[in-house]
Amino acid sequence: MGFLTMAGGDVDLTEIRSVYARQMAAASGSSDPRLEQAFAEVPREDFVGPGPWLIMGLTAALAGERYVRTLDADPAHLYQNALVALDAEKGINNGEPSLHAAWIGAVAPKPGEAVSHVGAGTGYYSAILSRLVLPGGSVHAFEIEPELAEKARRNLLPYPGVTVVTGDAVTLPLPASDIIYVNAGVVAPPAAWLHALKPGGRLIFPWRPSEKVALSVLVTRRQAGFALEPLMPSWFIPCVGASFAGRKAKLPDRAGAQRTRSIWRAADKPPDETATAIIGDVWFSSERLAE
């Protein structure tokens, strides 16, 4: 157990993590106690490099800056609801914890499940997901930036069942997955991602079909198709290979995106009058699927 010397006196880092984890559990909307435990036990400082750190959050916003630099390398700075720069020039961050907590609550990982994590960065949220699918589960962490992937590979060595893949998850085959967890903005998920979902599988991703739409959505594979639930606004860096719509695409406005309730592979079902968006080989529909 480590102790930190801070302005308010000696503070127990374990207690700081515990408070942070309780806040993330509340943000998740989940009743699974393992989620709070995972946020408490996975050290964020192991995944963001040595401090001081560049942090994006309320403090930066109030200062009118994109990032603010922490005064020192005290890990306590990391246990707040703020993004931490991994590559500030490219805009790559360790993402906002409360958003990820809400996403993890939405996909509800269970022991024994297989997760594909697209855009894993240096592995922090891969580590948390891995804790939630133990025993017997697995995480395939895809990262296209070689330097970040190598850091993730080192960082995730202590976490059983995790494999780091250096490469483009849009062109590489994803394994059959109970959960596909995407941390890069896409105009539409590749049809191959939908194909990789097991029955009952969940795909969560930031839908960014236009500058006016930035929406987290949860897709669930049902017997008759893929149900879609709009969640909350979200902004991520673009996903290489899946961030541009073709000229023939039909793109939604905000209202159309919010009305969307299912997604289809065009090879399975051609677009019809319910289409809110048609992008490449998938299309989005206002049709609500049966449970």
Rank of each mutant, 00 (worst) to 15 (best):
Ser130Met: 05
Pro52Met: 08
Leu83Ile: 09
Arg17Thr: 01
Gly201His: 03
Val107Phe: 01
Arg222Ala: 07
Val164Asn: 04
Pro189Ile: 10
Leu203Val: 06
Arg221Gly: 04
Pro271Gly: 10
Phe39Leu: 01
Ala188Glu: 01
Lys110Arg: 15
Pro75Glu: 00
Val213Glu: 00
Ala40Tyr: 02
Glu287Val: 14
Glu273Cys: 09
Phe39Lys: 03
Gly8Met: 06
Leu35His: 09
Glu65Ala: 14
Glu229His: 03
Asp168Gln: 05
Leu203Lys: 03
Pro190Gly: 05
Arg221Val: 03
Ala290Val: 11
Cys239Asn: 13
Lys110Glu: 14
Pro233Asp: 09
Val182Ala: 07
Gly123Gln: 01
Phe39Thr: 03
Asp178Arg: 06
Pro52Tyr: 09
Leu148Cys: 10
Leu71His: 14
Arg131Ile: 04
Gly256Tyr: 03
Leu58Thr: 15
Phe142Lys: 02
Arg69Phe: 05
Val115Trp: 00
Ser216Ile: 13
Pro270His: 11
Val217Trp: 00
Glu41Ser: 14
Leu148Glu: 02
Thr59Met: 12
Val84His: 04
Tyr124His: 07
Phe244Asp: 13
Glu96Tyr: 15
Arg288Asn: 10
Pro109Phe: 06
Asp12Tyr: 09
Gly246Phe: 10
Val48Glu: 00
Tyr181Leu: 00
Pro209Gln: 04
Lys110Met: 15
Glu15Met: 13
Leu62Glu: 15
Asn155Asp: 09
Gly112His: 08
Glu287Arg: 13
Ala149Val: 02
Val186Leu: 14
Arg34Phe: 06
Arg69His: 05
Gly57Glu: 05
Phe236Asn: 00
Val162Cys: 08
Ala21Ile: 08
Pro238Glu: 01
Leu4Arg: 12
Leu13Phe: 02
Gly280Asn: 09
Met6Asp: 12
Ala108Phe: 05
Val48Met: 02
Pro43Trp: 00
Asn81Asp: 15
Val170Ser: 02
Ala127Ser: 03
Leu35Ser: 10
Thr59Cys: 10
Gly8Asp: 07
Thr59Ala: 15
Thr70Asn: 10
Gly57Trp: 11
Thr166Asp: 08
Leu289His: 06
Phe236Ala: 05
Phe142Trp: 02
Ile16Met: 08
Ile179Trp: 00
Pro97Lys: 07
Ala245Gln: 02
Gln37Met: 12
Ile128Ser: 06
Gln80Arg: 15
Ile16Pro: 01
Gly64Tyr: 09
Val186Met: 15
Ala7Asn: 13
Met1Ile: 12
Gly105Met: 09
Ser130Gly: 11
Gly201Lys: 02
Lys248Val: 13
Ile180Met: 00
Leu148Gly: 05
Ile237Pro: 03
